[in-house]
Nucleic acid binder design. Structure first.
Ligand SMILES: [Mn+2]
Ligand SMILES: [Mn+2]
Ligand SMILES: [Zn+2]
Ligand SMILES: [Zn+2]
Lengths: 152, 152
DNA sequence: CGATTTATTGCAACCAAGTTGCATATACGG
DNA sequence: CCGTATATGCAACTTGGTTGCAATAAATCG
């Protein structure tokens, strides 16, 4: 273990952190503990995460809530993270890493229980036509609200 | 009605107010000046209206901002109005009158200039399939963000 | 018409989410 | 290691929205 720390074979955890670190650096951001924690949490989340979620998850890390806000907006600005309001007035963030199936995709929110699901890119088709901005067919964000299977 | 009692024909403006009044009453709400003003403004708007829009539009009416908040939520609760967050963290309201083409419909927001457009009901198709809640095809609200024709 | 009942309003206080200013700390290139 | 630009913590502030309560005014009924 100590040998590994000293630079022999990196553990999986170490190389994951190193990867995050270099993605941050490549985006022009410094790799601070707070940013590593935020990005790594977002990376492991299976659905978009709110600032409140993050505050709770990193409660005992001693990171200030303002730092979390700033980290989230910084990460969003450089494109490492995407921000969306899924229709319930709460900003949610998700990793924008295009590998690991995290390309831009539509989201579904249950108006009853609040459950959020990531849909596949292909699941929504927008028709061309009068009154529809041509560019809507190249929509950046699509979000759907309704009743989930459990609630309907 | 009063005009009839007085033996005159109601002006268009009078009958419009009378209609609003009776729609409010039919929904179990009292027809107050504030509600008539709000509903009538929403009715004449061509796109969803925020609380701030309303405060501005009715600035000199002397109606308190809290009353406007309460009116909007009351009207939404009884179904005369629909509320949506079009992805920018602002609640917007539109008349739910199903005649005059105001059925539930998708909305498009330009991420650049903020312009909002109401799309036709048929313009968005949601595919059936794995990972897609069956009920998503009966979505209640659909909202699309992207660049409008002018901004793209 | 009043008088009575009850929903609605105004106002002030409050709250939560998010932002900003600034002094201090720290990442990182040299 | 140092110097410097970037990032953080903390407090103050802003914005959008809610709540409690006393005063007001719709509706209902005789
Ligand atoms: Mn997603
Ligand atoms: Mn509309
Ligand atoms: Zn549900
Ligand atoms: Zn635009």
């Amino acid at each position: 273990m100590i040998a590994a720390v000293k630079g022999r074979h990196p553990t999986p955890a170490q190389s994951k952190v190193a990867a995050l670190r270099s993605r941050l650096r490549a985006s022009g951001l410094r790799a601070t503990p707070a940013r590593l924690a935020v990005l790594s949490f977002l990376e492991s989340a299976s659905r978009p995460v709110s600032h409140a979620d993050l505050v709770e998850a990193l409660a005992d890390s001693g990171i200030d809530r303002v730092t979390l806000y700033r980290n989230l907006t910084d990460l969003t600005q450089v494109g490492l993270v995407r921000r969306a309001d899924l229709g319930d007035h709460v900003w949610r963030f998700e990793s924008a890493q295009s590998k690991s199936g995290h390309a831009e995709h539509p989201h579904f929110t249950c108006v009853e229980c609040g459950e959020i699901a990531c849909l596949s890119e292909a699941s929504v088709r927008i028709a061309q036509g009068k009154g529809i901005p041509r560019s809507a067919t190249r929509a950046l964000e699509i979000q759907i609200r309704g009743l989930c299977d459990r609630c309907s």
